[in-house]
């Protein structure tokens, strides 16, 4: 499943790049691109991941937003409103320091909290759906808190661009 998501992501990135290459680029220039290293064309999934932040983190067993999380969510709202062509999945995750079924429900609660935030800021509910992976898909895989804190997260996965 994650392999699939990655493949889709890669294809989307490629698609965006090709789309831009094929279009006229008013105001665009090689110099502008080089400023962002060519890796984060505004409005691209990379732009979202690198310049906005695709994820927020949570405290243990919590689905409350930290001040850092709220700042990220506000940037995400701005970006998602600016690029309304994207639909997206909100993935809810938990760290490994919990039991399996509870963590799946906890991931769902985190994803739902993000969804509620977005909808309250005016993003149409039909642009998003949620899924919880519980503790099944850690991004950091050591056995201490430095990893666990990265795994307690909600991640925005953009699912279609410019369609």
């Amino acid at each position: 499943m994650p392999v699939m998501v990655n493949v889709v992501r890669a294809l989307l990135v490629a698609g965006v790049a090709l789309g831009l290459a094929a279009c006229a680029k008013p105001g665009g220039s090689g110099a502008d691109l080089s400023i962002t290293g060519g890796a984060a064309t505004p409005g691209s999934t990379q732009d979202f991941t690198v310049n906005v932040g695709d994820r927020v983190f949570f405290l243990t067993d919590s689905s409350e937003f930290t001040p850092e999380a709220v700042a990220t969510l506000n940037r995400q709202v701005q970006w998602l409103q600016r690029y309304p062509q994207y639909t997206f999945i909100i993935e809810g995750h938990a760290d490994e320091r919990g039991t399996r079924e509870y963590n799946i429900a906890l991931g769902a609660r985190r994803a739902s909290a993000v969804q509620t935030f977005f909808v309250s800021r005016g993003i149409p509910a039909n642009r998003m759906r949620t899924i919880s992976y519980g503790k099944e898909r850690p991004v950091a895989v050591c056995d201490d808190i430095s990893c666990w804190s990265q795994n307690r997260r909600a991640v925005i996965v953009l699912t279609n661009a410019g369609v």
Binding site: S63, E101, A105, A108, R109, S112, A113, T116, S132
Partner: peptide, 9 residues
């Protein structure tokens, strides 16, 4: 079984 909706299970 448990059903989840809107973050409530």
């Amino acid at each position: 079984l448990s059903l989840e909706r809107g973050g409530v299970t």
